[in-house]
Every structure is written in structure tokens, then in C-alpha cells.
């Protein structure tokens, strides 16, 4: 204890020896340099995107998408939701921390009484907010336009849940043990609609689309948006469609008719 009684004094720091005006000028110069250095990489990344994405035309031969006809979708029908839950091994119980990769949304215009019911899932955006904000690139967009979570990289920060305007991402908050072999999902990672990527690769439509067709509503069309002869592309060229929150400029792959 006795060693503590020795005081350790030291010289006060040096500096501040210049005139305030000179200091201020120097500081401004330094600030400019620091701002330039900080912003330069970010600006470069954004500029590259502007050049590439602004060039028009299709970069890729395949971009999978959906067309959902809200006029044909039956209110109260949950076939697509059930099919998704069954195929991907999700719970049927809609609790606050249970995942809902697809959900039926009902909108009502309070002024006119206009009402529609239709499914909403991950919109597989071209400029996906979840992909932009993900610090590790776990949220990513495949060359065929499907947006997925690479759970091997996901750190569970939930920034993508904050960023998605469609509430399409969920966080797995419990231990999961009964996964389907084709739909891995686990505690502590983010997840969302995969557009049934294994089915799509096997040449089949997503489970929700198949279920809607089986139920006889035929309100969902799946296909390659970049193939002008595909059913979805032909339909999109015929009827007026929109995307949800088109104003955000995210470029969703899921198109809606009748909303």
C-alpha cells in the first residue's frame, strides 16, 4: 500500500501555443481533408451504383418476380399463408415474436370504403434496404433477383428489420428444432421469404403460388420478369400494376394489381 503514497506528477500537455486565428484556419483545412477522406469511399460506392443501375436494360437474364392480383384474391382465404408455413416449417400461430414470411393484409380507404385483401411477403427489391444496411453482407441479392439471408454470416443485429418498409423480415427468437431440410432457420438470425428458392430452382413455382392456384383463385403469377415471353411479363405489359411504396424507389420484384 505504501507505494500508492508516492504521487506521480507529470507535466501538463503542450500545445495551444499558436494564435487562435491561425489555429482556426488550420483546423478548417484539416476538417476539410478529413471530411473528404471519410466521404470519398462512400461516394465512390454510390457513384458506381448510379452508373451501373442507371444504364437501363436488363443486366441479368433472370429476375424472378410475382404478380399478385388483389381483385382475384379472396378475402378470408389463407391458402398461401398456410402453404408457406407448411412448406418452410413455420408456426401456424401468429405470436408477436413468431415469423410470418407471408401474411394477408387488408387495406381500407376510410374516405371511400374501398377495401382489398392480398398477401404481402418479401418484395425482393432491386435496391433492397435490408441488403444496404447489413454490416456483413448476410442480407444479399442473388443474381436471379431473390433476396436471402446468409445465416452463416448473420450476426443478429436486426438492422434489416429496422430498414425494411414491408415488415418482411423477422428475427428468430426461440430455439428451432424441426426445420425442413430445404429451409434452414435458427435462433439469433434474421429471416424472411425465400421465394421458395429450392422449389424455384427445381422449376416449380413458390409454395404460395401453387396453393393459390390449387384453391382456384389464380391470384398469383410467378415467373421471370426479364423474359418478355413469360406469362408474368406478358401480363405486366397488359394490365395496370403498381408496387407497394413505389415512392421509395426500391424496385420490388412483387407487383400488385387492384390496390
Amino acid at each position: 500500500m505504501s507505494d500508492r503514497s508516492q504521487t506521480t506528477g507529470s507535466l501538463d500537455e503542450e500545445g495551444g501555443g499558436q494564435e487562435p486565428d491561425a489555429l482556426r484556419r488550420k483546423l478548417l483545412k484539416l476538417a476539410g481533408a478529413a471530411v473528404a477522406l471519410t466521404l470519398a469511399p462512400g461516394v465512390t460506392v454510390l457513384a458506381r451504383d448510379l452508373v451501373v443501375k442507371g444504364s437501363g436494360g436488363h443486366k441479368t437474364p433472370v429476375r424472378y418476380g410475382l404478380l399478385i392480383d388483389a381483385n382475384a384474391c379472396k378475402s378470408g382465404c389463407e391458402s398461401c399463408v398456410r402453404a408457406c408455413q407448411d412448406y418452410n416449417g413455420l408456426s401456424h400461430d401468429p405470436g408477436p415474436d413468431n415469423a410470418q414470411w407471408i401474411r394477408k393484409v387488408t387495406i381500407v380507404n376510410p374516405k371511400t370504403g374501398f377495401s382489398r385483401s392480398f398477401p404481402v411477403m418479401c418484395q425482393h427489391c432491386e435496391n433492397a434496404a435490408c441488403v444496404d444496411v447489413c454490416p456483413t453482407g448476410a442480407s444479399f441479392r442473388r443474381p436471379d433477383g431473390i433476396v436471402l439471408v446468409d445465416k452463416h454470416r448473420c450476426i443478429g443485429c436486426r438492422y434489416c428489420l429496422m430498414a425494411c418498409p414491408y415488415k418482411a423480415r423477422s428475427f428468430v427468437a426461440r430455439n428451432v428444432s424441426d426445420q425442413k431440410p430445404w429451409a434452414p432457420r435458427g435462433k439469433g438470425t434474421a429471416e424472411g421469404c425465400t421465394m421458395c428458392v429450392e422449389r424455384v430452382e427445381a422449376g416449380k413455382p413458390p409454395a404460395c403460388v401453387a396453393a393459390c392456384n390449387r384453391a382456384g383463385h389464380k391470384a398469383m403469377v410467378f415467373g421471370n420478369l426479364h423474359d418478355p415471353k413469360s406469362a408474368i411479363a406478358l401480363r405486366l405489359s397488359e394490365v395496370a400494376t403498381t408496387t407497394i411504396r413505389a415512392d421509395l424507389g426500391l424496385g420490388p420484384s412483387v407487383h400488385y394489381r387492384g390496390i
Binding site: P41, V133, T189
Partner: peptide, 20 residues
């Protein structure tokens, strides 16, 4: 974090479009 063990991924594969 949900998966703090994966934090190394942020160093190995940083996505510089992300503020994080």
C-alpha cells in the same frame, strides 16, 4: 446480438454500404 459469434464476419466481409 443474436449471434455474437459471427461478429468476425463483419471484419471478413464488410459491406461498406452499411453505416454499421
Amino acid at each position: 446480438l443474436g449471434r455474437p459469434g459471427h461478429l468476425l464476419a463483419a471484419v471478413l466481409y464488410p459491406n461498406f454500404r452499411s453505416i454499421f
